[in-house]
Design a protein around this nucleic acid. Structure first.
Length: 214
DNA sequence: CACCAGGCAAGTA
DNA sequence: TACTTGCATGGT
């Protein structure tokens, strides 16, 4: 018998199909995108990533050596550009110091150590860290975002005031610890959130989850 | 015009 | 501890 969190996944997958996340050709591109997309529309992130590519700056050592102001101007379309340029540099600095600038060593590290190192970076919080663990490192870590909280609280599967860690635990307690499943599930939550669970649609009208039994 | 988007950290009381 | 504010572009 499937629980509510498994049922919700089936409903979303049947409605939207596979999402093929994370959009990005390389681990480094995904890493950069994880920072750039903080509280920002993905379309704007795409513009910033395109600019980085066009200038040949979507590379660990090149970006790490770049002037902060120049980096900030390239990622300008993603918003908060001064802040994000500094955050990217902070993240690359940690990887340079802890993982010898080798992303493979990050992806091969054990998940608890990697998470601790990521969270030690100023500008990398729980969602960004978990996104990197799941989408760069292929670790079975469930990513929670604003949509996860909003959608599942509206459908009475979470209390309104539930914090990040508790939401993450709830999903991980109720699902197989499978990176492919967590990958698809988070992407599907973002998709249903964008289409049906905006603040301007407070009842989530016509949402694929509206008749989900709790 | 107002509002929001795949957060996070720092400031205030 | 529990709120509040700054960060910023681009689409609806």
């Amino acid at each position: 018998m499937k629980n509510s969190y498994q049922q919700a996944y089936s409903l979303l997958y049947d409605h939207f199909g596979p999402q093929n996340w994370w959009p990005g050709e390389t681990v480094f591109e995904i890493l950069v995108g994880a920072v750039l997309t903080q509280n920002t529309n993905w379309k704007n992130v795409e513009k910033a990533i395109s600019a980085l590519k066009e200038h040949g700056c979507l590379d660990f050592h090149i970006m790490y050596a770049m002037d902060d102001q120049v980096l900030a101007q390239l990622i300008r379309p993603a918003g908060y550009y001064n802040l994000k340029a500094a955050r990217l540099k902070n993240l690359l600095k940690m990887i340079a110091e802890v993982y010898h600038g080798d992303l493979r060593l990050l992806t091969e590290d054990d998940v608890d150590s990697a998470r601790e190192n990521l969270l030690s970076v100023k500008g990398v919080g729980p969602e960004t860290a978990d996104s990197i663990l799941l989408y760069c490192c292929d670790q079975p870590v469930f990513v929670v975002d604003a949509y996860t909280h909003r959608i599942f609280s509206r459908h009475n599967l979470l209390e309104e005031e539930t914090d990040y860690h508790t939401i993450q635990q709830t999903f991980m307690d109720n699902l197989d610890h499978d990176a492919c499943l967590f990958n698809e599930y988070h992407a599907l939550i973002v998709q249903v959130g964008k289409e049906y669970c905006k603040k301007s649609n407070p009842r989530c009208k016509d949402c694929p989850l509206e008749h989900l039994a709790v």
